[in-house]
């Protein structure tokens, strides 16, 4: 009865991680509720990938607690792996395998899930079913990577920049997939640099900078906050504020590349 609010798919407390002298994650708290799509935003180098990979159990944090689907990595790694879908920011799948062979491999690791043929249809790669990965375009590779994250019929999906490098059609198609997945009651944590994407897909977002969360809430709340502060909009156009305005106003105009 009292648990309605506490059903969280992911809970992170006071997470810290440094690489040599770089502090990548500097004390982060996050909660992703079951069934929502949560967006992690932030400029290059903000610490999004590091945070996500700690949640995925791929990176050891220096400090802090991570609870995924109510379980801990230290004790339940095997069970957790069966229930997570993961797309890393950068993975080059094996060039010499075909699309279906790649999915056969990934599907064989899971005890449940759609058949490789079904995921291929889901990401609309039917025509490329027997094409070698090396011959795929960038966007097609991206969709194959997404397909690999879906073969285990996951309860929680981690997508690190799933639409970077996609053309507008392919991007919309990935959005449809994510919405469909969410409608089926699953949970998504995604990172993105596209504010319209976050605005459209995410129930809530957290904006990170320099390893900290500097704002959080639903896109609507964040935009309303900005409107209340009456800050100038990014472009000289008569329009209402967008999440992009929120982002730029919080993180500044300068470039973040090392």
């Amino acid at each position: 009865m009292s648990e309605i609010e506490t059903t969280s798919a992911l809970r992170v407390r006071n997470l810290r991680k440094s690489f040599q002298e770089v502090i990548a994650v500097d004390g982060i708290d996050l909660e992703v509720r079951a069934g929502e799509c949560f967006g992690l935003l932030g400029p290059n180098g903000a610490g999004k990938t590091t945070t996500v990979e700690i949640c995925e159990g791929l990176t050891e944090p220096d400090a802090g607690e991570v609870e995924v689907l109510g379980r801990r990595w230290a004790s339940d790694a095997d069970a957790l792996r069966q229930r997570l879908g993961i797309q890393l920011q950068e993975t080059q799948l094996s060039d010499k395998l075909t699309v279906v062979e790649t999915l056969n491999l990934f599907r064989s690791f899971f005890g449940q899930g759609p058949t490789p043929g079904e995921v291929i249809a889901l990401v609309q790669l039917e025509e490329k079913r027997h094409a070698k990965v090396v011959t795929l375009s960038g966007g097609q590779k991206q969709r194959l990577a997404l397909a690999c994250s879906l073969v285990g019929d996951p309860d929680l999906l981690f997508l690190d920049e799933p639409t970077t490098g996609l053309d507008p059609q392919a991007r919309r198609q990935v959005w449809d997939l994510i919405e469909e997945f969410r409608r089926a009651g699953r949970t998504i944590l995604l990172t993105t640099h596209y504010m319209e994407e976050a605005e459209r897909l995410c129930d809530r977002v957290a904006i990170m900078d320099h390893g900290r969360v500097i704002a959080r809430g639903s896109p609507r709340e964040l935009i309303e906050d900005l409107d209340r502060q009456g800050k100038p909009l990014t472009e000289l156009r008569a329009r209402t504020a967008t999440l992009e305005d929120v982002f730029v106003s919080l993180t500044g105009h300068h470039l973040r590349d090392e």
């Binding site: 059903t7 069934g35 689907l69 229930r83 064989s108 899930g113």
Partner: peptide, 22 residues
Amino acid sequence: MSESLPQTRRQTSTPGRAGLGH
């Protein structure tokens, strides 16, 4: 706790290894 996650609609999901072997 994991069992209490809402599962409104499953996409097609075949149990087992989908005939792919070990």
